[in-house]
Amino acid sequence: MFPRSRSALSAVLIALASLLAPCATLAGWAMHGPADTGRYVAAVAPLADDPAVRDAAADTLGAGFTGFVDEATAGPVNGAVRLFVRDAARSFTRTEAFHEGWDAANRTVHAAVLRALRDDGAAGHAVTVDLAPVTERVRDRFAEDHVPFARRIPVRHTAVTVLPAHDADRLRKGYRVLDVAAFWLPLAAVAFAVTGIAVAACRRRAVTAAGIGTALGGALLALAVPVGRRLTVAELPGPVDGPAAGAVGAVYDALTETLRTASWLLVALGLAVALASWLTGRYGRPARRTPVPEPPGEPAPPRPSRTRL
């Protein structure tokens, strides 16, 4: 194969490897980050102390309790009661019972969603969870803390829809694609990079190009994370500057923390490989020896000329 053909083939393979590297990182993060229930709960556990999450939870709890009182009294409650319920809900979000309920609710919801995504027989069905065990756990914690009327808190077994059927089916298809991509994309990226370096006319330059391409792919992935955050918050219904938007943003930041770290590690790895290859080529070459001129010697005696008779 001619050197130009080898260089062109090497450039194409290295470009493909550079494009697949961030895609493989994203697929691996999606399968081993948010898809793991333990890691997910551990990632969102500190969010129970986030002010935006507390405000959103307090609004949800206050609205639910007010609706329960409306049903019990057959009429709307007055403003003073609503203000009291709101203050009580905000105070509850600062207790240890709220933290336990937060972890239990996230674990229950995440396990239900993950079970539905992995079950092909659940096609066409919405993802629902029963939060009665969570409510019962919070009620027992209130009773242990001697909260008045804690035992009278009703525990209702109501199926709460987490994902509609069409959203669950769409996510199930995407989950299967990610499962395959998380295994094959890293192998393909490594295979393309190794082959591109092997067929290159100048392997040192190919290694440098592969390192730079990997670093650029990691940088693009790092820039895509905040763009995804804006798009996620923008898709929220209603105004995007309320507590719900802040809560969603905080959850997004917690879940993508490992992705941001992986993208910058990809940048550092690519730059390290490129720098090592460049330094090796610049300072690792053997020094060229300049030819030393021989010292001038004594002139050779002239040859006797033959006279032709």
Rank of each mutant, 00 (worst) to 15 (best):
F142N: 07
D140S: 14
A35Q: 13
A215D: 07
G67F: 01
R152T: 11
E71F: 03
D167V: 13
I197F: 12
D59V: 11
A30T: 12
A191M: 02
T307G: 01
A17I: 11
D87V: 11
T60Y: 10
D119S: 07
L20W: 09
R308H: 13
T158W: 05
G246P: 00
E235N: 11
G297C: 09
T258F: 06
D70P: 00
I212L: 15
A268P: 03
W102H: 07
A210W: 09
G218P: 10
A52S: 15
L163Q: 00
V194K: 08
A30H: 01
A168F: 15
V160E: 09
V44H: 01
D169T: 08
F142E: 09
W102T: 00
L309H: 12
Y252I: 00
L178Q: 00
R204A: 12
L271M: 15
A245E: 07
V225K: 06
E235L: 11
A206G: 10
R260Y: 03
P299L: 03
G238I: 04
H157M: 01
K173P: 01
A48V: 08
P46D: 09
M1H: 10
P296C: 09
R139V: 02
A126Q: 10
A104M: 03
D140C: 01
F98T: 08
G249Y: 01
A200H: 06
R4L: 14
V127T: 07
G28Q: 08
A245C: 02
S18K: 10
S91E: 03
A80V: 03
T256Q: 08
V162L: 09
E136N: 13
G67A: 12
L223N: 02
W264L: 15
G196N: 07
G33V: 04
G281P: 05
L178I: 11
P301L: 06
S10P: 00
V267G: 13
L187M: 02
V251T: 10
L255V: 15
A219I: 05
A206C: 09
T256N: 04
A122H: 10
G101P: 05
V160G: 08
A182T: 06
L61W: 00
P76A: 13
R152C: 03
H166Y: 11
T232S: 06
A72F: 05
S263V: 15
R118K: 13
T290R: 15
A35E: 07
A247P: 05
V53K: 04
A272Y: 11
T307R: 15
V251I: 09
S305M: 14
A89N: 03
A48Y: 08
P304A: 00
A132N: 07
G213M: 04
G228I: 05
P164Y: 02
L114Y: 12
S10A: 14
L275P: 12
T195E: 01
T73C: 00
E136D: 14
